[in-house]
Design a protein around this nucleic acid. Structure first.
Lengths: 247, 247
DNA sequence: CGATTTATTGAATCGACTCAATTGATGTGG
DNA sequence: CCACATCAATTGAGTCGATTCAATAAATCG
């Protein structure tokens, strides 16, 4: 269960009090839904109601053009919050869909009001989450604009691996990896065929082992080099060090 | 002077009180700097100190790879705030540079603390600004990942034109346009040469008139079509209508 | 006014795409 | 538990959008 991942992630940035933990725990337990793979959680045009906290499973944020071209603009991993304060806006400008079966907690506007009123550390933690998500989105812009296919793919894999590790969701050099090549294509702006060839390149260079929904990164440093990956944008600079230890 | 643009922009979303106006006015007047064109306001790796409010001129947010490849990930127009609460983070993961000469107000951490403590409408307005900036960044991801060169360029021009109009910075169908083709190349992920050819295409289709640092959009609807532009992500849905009138 | 930046044009090349077919997994019902 | 159906991954061949390199023209600036 991955309220733990959320707290672990937030705590590498701010230290939360027992009360803060309790508040988050209660919010995450209140309205939980279990969704199958490949369904929409919210759709472009919807009126935003709740903020979604992913407790288990993977999801993605995507946008689509009328002619069907589709871009995944973000992945959500367990412990990720979809859009803090999204209910401020009138309507969604994008959709959120599940990749695997997902457990999601719906966080109400009232919860955020409560937090804003009396839990400044959580407010700070949520701002941190928001700023990091913005940084990730910028890095994706960079990724699509400047990196070659294999750099781009290596970069994306580094990011996912590090984000999973931050949530305590890796086993040494390996992690679950439920994305299909079609998902990777939608995220990297490449064609499915080229994604396939790009992955083969990375495999041939012994940068990744990817099969059966599992990713192994034998040498993260080399994969980072291949992707021109600089982790600064993930802003894991605080207590992050100590967490690295128990991997 | 473009505190007006900021207020105009925020007010099409939340109605601010006279006190709110005064607070913003004071903050924007306190520490103002005038910078020449083509210099950095902040650099990647810096410790974030203040939040920057662009009072006049254009700037951009950019990231660079070691080998020199450069991606502009956002443009800042008069009235734009660079990163609300950025001082939460340890260090900048990108740089901000001027394009034209710029007047910038440095907003202190204390200002944001004051706002958080006693000016809920401004807090909401700042969240709105933050969420819209995130939406813009997502749309750029989409733009780079899915649109062809000419769609991409048309889309970018639509966005800039609409954002300028929202700040009251257009004259009918025209606006200032200080970006060079090299800037457009860095923003669209295209080569300079191809930017040139793409602009010629748009000119040939009578979608734009662009010369001498001025852009004219004879038919915004057609340009939007050409760029597969859906303005929903700018979230101008509120009092926006009435503002359109006095253009 | 010359110097430098910005814009434009041409030609050759290449990275990534499309189309099309095949192989390999995964999953479901009889 | 196998057989079939579907979805995911792989391979080959030909094409095209966008790139690079290189040179010239036009603007802008001190």
């Amino acid at each position: 269960m991955s309220l733990a991942s959320l707290i672990r992630k937030l705590e590498q940035f701010v230290r939360l009090s027992p009360t803060d933990h309790a508040i988050l725990g209660r919010a995450a337990a209140e309205r939980v839904r279990h969704l199958p793979a490949r369904v929409d959680i919210v759709r472009e045009g919807d009126k935003p109601r709740d903020v979604h906290l992913i407790l288990a499973g993977w999801a993605c944020r995507y946008k689509q053009l009328e002619d069907g071209r589709r871009q995944v603009v973000a992945f959500f991993l367990p412990g990720d919050i979809c859009d803090v304060n999204i209910f401020i806006l009138r309507e969604m400008d994008h959709s959120i869909g599940t990749i695997t079966p997902v457990s999601v907690a719906d966080l109400s506007r009232e919860f955020f009001d409560t937090v804003a009123a009396g839990h400044p550390r959580i407010v700070t933690a949520f701002w941190w989450e928001t700023l990091v998500n913005a940084a990730i989105q910028r890095e994706w812009t960079m990724n699509l604009g400047q990196r070659t296919a294999s750099e781009r793919m290596a970069h994306l894999l580094c990011e996912i691996f590090l984000r999973l590790r931050l949530g305590g969701l890796t086993n040494g050099e390996g992690c679950d990896f439920p994305l299909t090549q079609a998902d990777l294509a939608d995220a990297t702006g490449l064609s499915k065929v080229h994604v396939n060839r790009t992955l083969q390149e990375l495999r041939a260079a012994d940068l990744i082992v990817l099969k059966g929904k599992t990713l192994v990164v034998p040498d993260l440093g080399r994969l980072m080099q291949a992707g021109l990956f600089n982790p600064n944008y993930l802003h894991m600079e605080h207590e992050g060090r100590q967490l690295d230890a128990n991997e």
